[in-house]
Design a protein around this nucleic acid. Sequence first.
DNA 1: GTCTACCTATAGGCACTCTACATGTAGAGA
DNA 2: TCTCTACATGTAGAGTGCCTATAGGTAGAC
Lengths: 111, 111
Amino acid sequence: MGVNTDALRGHMDALLLSVLEHEPLHGYAIIEALQARSGGALSVPTGTVYPALRRLEQAGYLAGEWATVGGRKRRTYRLTAAGRTALAGERSAWREFAGVIGSVLEPRATK
Amino acid sequence: MGVNTDALRGHMDALLLSVLEHEPLHGYAIIEALQARSGGALSVPTGTVYPALRRLEQAGYLAGEWATVGGRKRRTYRLTAAGRTALAGERSAWREFAGVIGSVLEPRATK
DNA sequence: GTCTACCTATAGGCACTCTACATGTAGAGA
DNA sequence: TCTCTACATGTAGAGTGCCTATAGGTAGAC
């Protein structure tokens, strides 16, 4: 149980954008959301998430904003318009990717 | 059209083992087989395949043997018993991986 | 006063794929 | 004969991006 997160290389952006689709979240909450949505299989370390969020922000896909809640500082991210477009692209890229790998790994018996 | 092969990171072993499941092949033929099985979407460069084959051989999953066909030298690889076990593991790992990513990217509307 | 949960962040390492290059045979066609 | 394409293997060096480990800090419970 638990996905080898090294295999996530190249798909992390899709996951992060996806989890922010319907509501802005801060980094810590994003990690929890990923874990919840995956049924506990995804434990993405903070050292992966925080740099990735900054990268996506610099790319213009996310907008971050500092907030203080209960004395704790949070950086909350929301999807930009460009981020929504990117998410759509990531989704279709994932579908193609999964189809291709699947067709190689488990080819139809029709040979 | 055509998968970004950089996203293959971590899945290449599965692809190579899978394509060798039913018949031994040499490197060049493996590349062609991958392309054929994927409907042309996968163009894996030689600089990726040859080192990967050696890595898998060293890991004990493949056994390589030199042959000369029509004056050309080929190194033909076949799956070992350990390779078959590894392939089974790669397959189930892929299914879990695809399921997890899918569940995050396109969660059921039941919320 | 210590422990756990909450929260963000950087440094350095490392695995794996990429691009580009290097080398060579065989056969078709001009 | 020369050249081009397909066949065939391989290395060097770069780059990406995820990892582990470490760091720092607040709030609340016990």
